[in-house]
Design a protein around this nucleic acid. Structure first.
Length: 419
RNA sequence: GUGGCCAUAGCUCAAUAGGCAGAGCAUCUGGUUGUGGCCCAGAAGGCUGUGGGUUCAAGCCCCACUGGCCACCCCA
């Protein structure tokens, strides 16, 4: 038997209210802030991601769905949004648009990972980017989109985690300080952390190894190593966050796995998705566009995992509004009536009234049972007897009250009843 | 990539100690001609994830594979 590939899932009709609720809100909030939607291809030239995300990152080294197409081109299924959006910014000369350019996207992301709670091989992200502006108010703007959205969705107990990982000017010194600090305790680190020490020392701060915990509190904080520019940027941003009423905490252990981040990094944490607390993560990437061959252009953005948002909303007991469904069923009895009902259903739908047709020539009892399950407000009974008189019986399901109506009067009558 | 737990009907789960595979829900039909929900009856639904092995006999024991859940790694 075929099964959905590992780490993928079908989004069934029963899940759809949540998806609609969440994605609608994303469009609305993005619009509220003046963001415009952009969609980029679901696959790109592999080199774009290798260059954009960075060699040495887990995503590039072991998580990409890369393959050769029939023409021999090396392509990769989108493992994150940013690189593709940057490519589009450069390709379409968006640096001549009024700056900053504010873009958002929504769609599937592919990573070859071992699935677990809140982690899949195909998941969906809401992605937001602002290009072409260094102003810390832009950092605030981006975080504010996430904050406004999550709040509007009905979240309680959100945590905004903030840090600055510096820039090419100040990061090397910090990195060195970290290495020096942990090197003196090398014998107390286990294998995983010792490997991190050489490969990516910043990630040591995020270690969950027990042996490392006592060492972390006293480890050097990036904030103490920031250059003037980065320090000012962070301080100003915090002022703005306070002004916006966005509670946040500096988490000096917040480091992110993608190479391109400079200065601001942040995550929003929520509960209910197992060990994966981050529902949203992002930061500033002031070198990326240049790295990809465009003009020097600062940028900042975040990705938000839609599956994680939905999982935690469920866990918090947030109920999405029901999806619109047909309010009327037409139940014909007998073949001539079945023919007439075809026309009636067509007319109802043309009048904007969602209508179901009673299939299969079933008994009235069976059709009413079906209408009940479908949750319609009215059932229009059209038997051969009614047809002879050119009338129908309209049954209000909630009360069981029935009315006889002339066939041409059905649509207007239902229209006023259904609003 | 590493580790732990797990896999029986569409769903949630039973099946002493290896000994004929079950229930609830859902589906379909019926309970006097054409009237739903509640109730009652019946039907359908299974190569017990796949492939090997042990045994007179395997849903149950052993191995491999596939998949799920959870954690690490990493990320959203």
């Amino acid at each position: 038997m075929y099964q959905a590939p590992r780490g993928t899932q079908d989004i069934l009709p029963a899940d759809r209210p949540y998806w609609r609720y969440v994605t609608e809100a994303m469009h609305q909030v993005a619009g509220l802030f003046g963001f415009q939607q952009i969609d980029t291809p679901i696959f790109e030239e592999t080199g774009l991601y290798v260059r954009g995300v960075g060699e040495g990152t887990d995503i590039v080294d072991k998580e990409m769905y890369s393959f050769q197409d029939k023409g021999g081109a090396e392509v990769t299924l989108r493992p994150e949004w940013t690189a593709g959006v940057m490519r589009a910014y450069i390709e379409h000369g968006m640096h001549v648009w009024p700056q900053p350019v504010k873009l958002y996207s929504m769609g599937p992301i592919f990573r070859y990972e071992r699935p677990q709670a809140g982690r899949f091989r195909q998941h969906h992200q809401f992605n937001v980017e602002v290009l072409g502006e260094m102003d810390p108010a832009v950092d605030l703007e981006v975080m504010s989109v996430a904050w406004t959205l999550l709040t509007r969705l009905g979240y309680r107990g959100l945590h905004l985690q903030l840090n600055s990982t510096g820039c090419p000017v100040c990061r090397p010194a910090y990195r060195q300080a970290l290495v020096a600090y942990f090197a003196q305790y090398e014998d107390r680190l286990n294998d995983v952390d010792r490997r991190r020490l050489t490969i990516n020392p910043l990630r040591l701060l995020d270690s969950k190894e027990e042996a490392a915990q006592p060492l972390l509190d006293a480890a050097p904080h990036s904030a103490d190593y920031l250059c003037e520019e980065c320090a000012t940027h962070l301080a100003t941003l915090r002022t703005y966050l306070d002004a916006a009423g966005m509670q946040h905490s500096i988490n000096f252990r917040l480091v992110r796995g993608l190479d391109y981040y400079t200065k601001t990094v942040f995550e929003v944490w929520a509960e209910g998705i197992g060990a994966q607390a981050a529902v949203c993560g992002g930061g500033r990437y002031d070198r990326l566009i240049e790295e990809l061959g465009g003009p020097p252009t600062p940028g900042i953005g975040f990705g938000m995992g839609i599956e994680r948002v939905i999982a935690s909303l469920r866990q918090q007991g947030v109920q999405p509004p029901p999806l619109p469904a047909p309010r009327v069923q037409v139940s014909p009895l007998g073949e001539p009536a079945r023919v007439a009902a075809i026309t009636l259903v067509r007319d109802l739908r043309a009048a904007g009234i969602g209508a179901l047709y009673g299939f299969g020539g079933r008994s009235l009892k069976s059709q009413l049972k079906g209408a009940d399950k479908a949750g319609v407000a009215y059932t229009v009974i059209l038997g051969d007897q009614e047809l002879a008189d050119n009338v129908v019986i309209v049954r209000e399901m909630a009360t069981g009250e029935q009315a006889r109506l002339g066939l041409p009067d059905v649509a207007p009558w239902l229209r006023t009843r259904l609003g």
